[in-house]
């Protein structure tokens, strides 16, 4: 506004500054943020999440208080970021215990450390794995979103049908290869899925994340899959988005967002239950996990279902 007309002289020293308190933080990230890092930039912005590129090229998330804990995520006491006009590409200063963006500053120090807590798979019988897989599948199908790994939604347009068919083929190829212990086949299966599908995190990546986190648990038989996926991510990093690649690498290291970890942790307690009882016990964590993204939650849980089936089959083969 024209200052002569308003009769008011305005001198902006610098733009309004809001300071936010961090609530919780991935312990690995927290260790990074307490060291001097330098200048990074805003990678992308969403209503509840800002993705920031650290000076070393890694990706971290500044999440609003309802977004939930996850690897490389700092949860901050704000409902959302929409009010602060943050744009991709803007500089971010990382000083020990502090992150400064244009107009806002995050006080990292109050953050509680968050660790992914995951169960071991070794104690689970093949039968229990089967029950867990079936009940998870029933819940995912009942409450999940179509359009990704669950198949095309009703009256889908040709493009969605084509993508869903490709996702289905990728899953089939990967499953066959894992059961055949065929590394070259596993590689083809991973490549058939990586970066494929609609939405901000491609559905194929979410699916692989579900298997990847199982492959990181103690007692897993999915080691060969983990090795191949890790190699593919190293060699072909451009196949998918930075966010997806980061999520997959973390899952291989046994680190996933809290809502997904909660589903895994609920599984051991369903021992000796039938499918219906297990579905009842898993219902609440599953519904929270499904609420992630549009089809993302559904696709990740679809990966868990496939992973659990594979674990069960691989155990059976060894017995």
């Amino acid at each position: 506004m024209d200052s002569e007309r308003t009769g008011v002289a305005v001198t902006a020293v610098r733009s309004t500054h809001a300071v936010f308190r961090a609530l919780s933080c991935d312990a690995v990230l927290l260790a990074h943020l307490r060291a001097p890092l330098g200048r990074g930039r805003v990678e992308s912005t969403y209503h509840r999440v800002l993705n920031l590129l650290l000076p070393d090229g890694r990706l971290m998330a500044l999440a609003g208080r309802d977004a939930g804990d996850a690897p490389w995520t700092l949860v901050v006491d704000t409902p959302h970021w929409s009010a602060y006009d943050i744009e991709a590409g803007q500089p971010v200063e990382f000083t020990p215990g502090r992150i400064a963006l244009p107009g806002i500053e995050i006080d990292v120090d109050p953050a509680e450390e968050w660790h992914t807590i995951l169960p071991a798979l070794g104690d689970l019988t093949p039968q229990h794995l089967g029950v867990a897989a079936r009940s998870l599948y029933a819940l995912t199908r009942a409450h999940g979103e179509f359009g990704g790994m669950l198949g095309a939604s009703r009256n889908a347009w040709p493009m969605e049908s084509v993508v869903c068919a490709a996702l289905d083929e990728g899953r089939a190829a990967l499953t066959r290869a894992v059961l055949a212990r065929d590394p070259a086949g596993i590689r083809d299966g991973v490549l058939a899925l990586l970066g494929l599908g609609p939405g901000l995190t491609p559905a194929g990546d979410d699916f692989l994340t579900g298997i990847a986190v199982l492959s990181a648990l103690d007692g897993t038989r999915l080691g060969p899959f983990a090795t191949v996926l890790g190699d593919v991510l190293d060699e072909r990093s451009g196949r998918t988005t930075l966010l997806s690649a980061t999520t997959l690498r973390e899952a291989l290291a046994g680190r996933v967002r809290a809502s997904l970890a909660d589903v895994l942790c609920a599984i051991p307690a369903t021992r000796r239950q039938d499918t219906a009882q297990a579905a009842d016990a898993l219902k609440n964590p599953v519904r929270r996990a499904l609420a992630h993204g549009h089809t993302s939650g559904t696709d990740t849980l679809s990966g868990l279902v496939t992973g659990l089936h594979l674990e069960k089959e691989l155990r059976g083969q060894q017995l």
Binding site: M159, E160, G195, P198, R239, T240
Partner: peptide, 22 residues
Amino acid sequence: VAQAFVAMGTEMNKGVLGNLGL
């Protein structure tokens, strides 16, 4: 609009669009 598709610009997604001639 006959159909519409929203996805990230990954190789795989571009491949699907290529197969559909789009």
